[in-house]
Amino acid sequence: MPALHNGGLNRFAWLTAGATLLLLVAGALVTSNDAGLAVPDWPLSYGTWMPPMVGNILYEHGHRMVATFVGLLTIILAVWLWRSEPRRWVRRLGWAALAAVIFQGLLGGLTVLFLLPRPVSIAHAALAQVFFCLTVTVAVVTGPGWQREEPRLVEAGQPPLRHMAEMATLGIFVQLLLGASYRHSLVSIVPHLVGAVAVVYFGARAFERVRRLPRRPAELWQPAAALAGLVGAQLLLGPLAYWARLQAIESPQPTFFLVVTTVAHVAVGGLALASSLVLTLQCHRRLEIPATAGRFSRAPEKAAA
């Protein structure tokens, strides 16, 4: 085991990332239940720390409670990294996560005080995913696998796998933003559908490239397989959530089916982003692009020939 590895810190980083996923679910519950303004004040809720948890107050105040818990975890994580992590860039990741969670809290407050301005609500949804990515990154790079000395593999195929993984990660992030924009009625469903095609393309290409790697290193194969499975699940959940929305048009309130499918779609989207991010990070750690390889944007298939 390398001297850098701190098992307790790594487990705590994963706890923070897991709690952040829970926070994403709590946020999706707020939007899906139309509970965004069920608590009109901020930072207090109905002038107190613990309002009656009735109706949609349960979702809105519950979201605030989970957010506070994640904020506390992030403070501890940042301080722990600062005190015990020798790599400066990892310590900076901890501070970046802390800054992100504070700013995220302020954006949440702005959405309440300014009655759900769409750009702020969408920025809140976007920063949630960025923050989740930061906590997952900290968890991955503080793990024993990341710090183990291993020979780098030279990639033979083109375009480079890392570029496919990067495109998949970027595509999923944009896709999550388009989904949030659709939920907040800023755009139609069409951009989200187009984004789905792009995500499936890059995700499938990345998975196929990892599948063909000799001996399929576990640290690449596991996130690639997870990415493929999660994107596949999204292809089922997306249409299901849309159908649930159409079915609920006549309903006087959000239906249980609509809430469950939408929240699952958001949560699995977050997990797909995390898988793709981990694959990208591991590609950068384990794979080496031959010096002769062209860049993705320059007709790479020909450059490799």
Binding site: V39, P51, V54, I57, L115
Partner: peptide, 21 residues
Amino acid sequence: QTTHNIHPVPAVNREWNTSMP
């Protein structure tokens, strides 16, 4: 005997959101 919030969503008047325990 329960908490409500009242929230008009006008297009040209001022929007507001007030709790009513």
